[in-house]
């Protein structure tokens, strides 16, 4: 670097690892929400959806946290985040929300797994040995629904936290954008929550492919996609055009808008009309679009100040 003439490289403090972490935390929150809501409130039985969501949540949040730790300047001192607390820092509060969520999702995943294993056993064994299944594993199942309920709070917390983390940077014109110009209501937590539920649901459906009728879920995902399109439109009008320029223009228009929102929406409408099964391409595009959104937000906020 030239000290006098200030030839600086476009360096960002937070790069791809953080974008990927924010994306994975969203997926984890959304997948957990899908599984636990189904578990608690659905009249129909969707065991595969519950399993898919519960397992995806665990894997995503653990991989995400791993990326977060590796991205630290001093990875081996990550435990100091638990020791020194600053209640005024969103990141410090987030450490506890995400830790709580990780713990709950692991417990929930184990309970879901035990339940599935027990169900399988019942199906295999004959009627007179069914008693064996109602052992320790079944006793623990009493905790499954309370864990799911508490987990819902933590999964919403985790998904919105990823937005608050960025929006709390008051000196960043893009990240700090308020919702509809209302000072005090930051935009990103709302956008990231909707995107998290949408991508988490999509990932869960990919994991539960060909497991009966998923029409209800497809319709929910369509509503979420439409909601996200509205939010992205509001965002586009709320900030300066420079944030959608240069290399970020391609990522935004191609990745976020066309691949992540418009194509899956049109394909879903088409599939509902023609009764075609297009879960894999629709959900795949939603998930990739969700990653593009995080990458776009993380980078454009730092590149153009």
């Amino acid at each position: 670097m030239d000290v006098i003439w200030g030839v600086s490289v476009d360096e960002v403090a937070w790069g791809g690892a953080i974008a990927f972490y924010l994306f994975l935390a969203g997926i984890a929150g959304g997948a957990f929400l899908t599984a636990s809501m189904t578990d608690l409130f659905s009249k129909k039985q969707y065991p595969k959806v519950i399993q898919s969501g519960a397992y995806i949540a665990i894997v995503s949040i653990i991989v995400g946290l791993g990326l977060l730790v590796v991205d630290l300047g001093r990875p081996f001192s990550f435990w100091k985040l638990l020791l020194h607390v600053n209640m005024g820092s969103v990141m410090s509060i987030g450490v506890f929300i995400v830790s709580g969520f990780t713990g709950l999702s692991v417990v929930y995943g184990v309970l879901v797994w035990l339940n599935a294993a027990a169900q399988k056993q019942i199906r295999i064994t004959s009627a007179n040995t069914e008693v064996a299944a109602t052992s320790v594993g079944q006793g623990l199942q009493a905790f499954r629904k309370p864990v799911a309920g508490l987990g819902i709070l933590f999964s919403i917390g985790t998904a919105t936290y990823t937005g608050f983390l960025l929006s709390a940077v008051t000196t960043n014109n893009f990240w700090h954008t308020p919702f509809m110009g209302i000072e005090g209501i930051p935009f990103l937590p709302i956008l990231f929550l909707v995107s998290a539920i949408s991508t988490g649901l999509a990932a869960t459906l990919i994991g539960a492919l060909n497991c009966g009728d998923l029409t209800t879920y497809k319709k929910i995902d369509m509503v979420l996609i439409i909601l996200e399109i509205v939010l992205i439109f509001i965002l586009y009008l709320s900030v300066k055009p420079v944030f959608f320029s240069g290399s970020m223009a391609v990522l935004f228009w191609l990745g976020v808008v066309i691949l992540g929102l418009m194509s899956p929406l049109l394909l879903s409408i088409y599939s509902l009309a023609k009764h075609k099964n297009v879960i894999l391409p629709v959900c795949g595009m939603v998930v990739i679009g969700g990653f593009c959104l995080r990458y776009f937000v993380v980078y454009t906020g730092q590149l153009f100040k």
Partner: peptide, 20 residues
């Protein structure tokens, strides 16, 4: 106490900070 999370670097409007 610093873990090197770089949050401060994203917050500083003067680009005064770096990761040693």
């Amino acid at each position: 106490k610093c873990v090197g999370c770089k949050y401060c670097m994203t917050a500083c409007p003067y680009d005064a900070r770096f990761l040693n």
